[in-house]
Simulated assay, not measured.
Amino acid sequence: MPPLTPALPSSSSSQHSPSRDALVLALRAAGCVFAEEEAALIVDAARNADEAEAMAARRAAGLPLEHVVGWAEFHGLRVTVGPGVFVPRRRTEFLVDQALAAAPHASVVVDLCCGSGAVAAALAASLGPVELHAADIDPVAVDCARRNLAGHGGHAYAGDLFAPLPARLRGRVDILAANVPYVPTGEVPLLPAEAREHEPLTALDGGADGLDVLRRVAAEAPHWLAVGGCLLVETVERQAAAAVEAFSRAGLAVRVARDEEMSAQVIIGTRVR
């Protein structure tokens, strides 16, 4: 999992601020590779110089930039995030694009392991009016997702995978996006400190081979998908064969999509009967 990358500054943050040079120096000294861009975002988000300095100090101490400024850029949206919430990765935009290509006329969308609800919000923004649902086991993430989905008329539920979803969704879901945790347990300590120390373990740790949650989702997905509906899950390349096997065992027609430039891989399973 690569380090989190900052979103580009908005046009208002490109204007010079008297405090920006000092912020850049402080961030650079803390090892922030994108110090100038991060300083611009902090200045843009802060209400005054004192708040900007405090925000820069939190960033220098290792807090993810997105948690510092309160949002992340994702698929053209500004998604609200907060402390303790998984930060949506830019490579997951590929999952959104694959979902839109597979089901461009979807009317019922579910986002499992939703975190901030970024995937659900991006799908709704592109599809237009849809019936939108999201779920996560972490109540902090669910509170954040509710804020991000409110403008799309979406609903977010706290619970384990499918358990909190309304039963009336069974057999009706056109897009089931599940950005499951897929880091093998033994590799979690190797993650960047930003993720390891500031994001929930439940959003990162996928079990011994990283596929524990993926297998559970694949096994139950056919009961929730409409005929022609698709399940989309992000993995890494070395997990592809085992992930495809899990989808096939569940009776889904499966294919793998890759984007080398984004280092992204998505397993796509379609309910054909």
Rank of each mutant, 00 (worst) to 15 (best):
R147D: 08
C144I: 00
V119A: 11
N179D: 09
G228P: 03
P166V: 04
D209W: 15
G228Q: 06
G210K: 10
G206Q: 11
C114V: 00
Y157W: 15
A135V: 07
L191R: 10
A163N: 06
E234D: 08
L211F: 11
A177W: 00
P192R: 13
V227D: 11
L123K: 08
A243V: 01
A167G: 07
A158V: 14
G151H: 12
G117F: 04
V213M: 10
Y157Q: 03
L252E: 00
G159H: 06
A163T: 08
P222G: 03
L231C: 02
H223S: 13
E131Y: 02
P139N: 06
G151R: 13
A158S: 14
Y157H: 15
A246Q: 12
P192S: 10
L149N: 04
G117V: 14
G117S: 03
S248L: 05
A156N: 00
V119F: 02
R168C: 06
A141T: 08
G206I: 14
A226W: 07
A134K: 03
D174N: 06
G210E: 15
V244R: 10
A145I: 02
C144W: 05
V256R: 15
H152P: 05
S248F: 03
E194G: 09
V227A: 08
P129M: 11
A240T: 15
G151D: 01
V180D: 09
A253S: 12
C114Q: 02
E234M: 09
E234N: 04
F162W: 12
P200Q: 04
P192I: 11
A240P: 02
R172P: 00
A240V: 15
G171Y: 02
H152S: 14
R238L: 05
A177E: 05
A124F: 04
P192D: 10
H133T: 00
R147L: 14
E199K: 13
A226H: 09
A208R: 12
V233M: 01
E197W: 08
T202M: 12
W224M: 04
E197H: 12
A122K: 11
A243Y: 04
R215L: 13
P192G: 10
R196H: 13
S116E: 02
D160V: 10
G128Q: 06
L232K: 00
A120E: 00
G206N: 09
E199W: 06
G153W: 08
A125D: 15
W224Q: 07
L214W: 04
L252D: 01
P189L: 07
L190I: 00
D209F: 11
G251N: 13
Y182P: 14
V188T: 10
T202L: 13
C230Q: 11
P189I: 10
R168F: 05
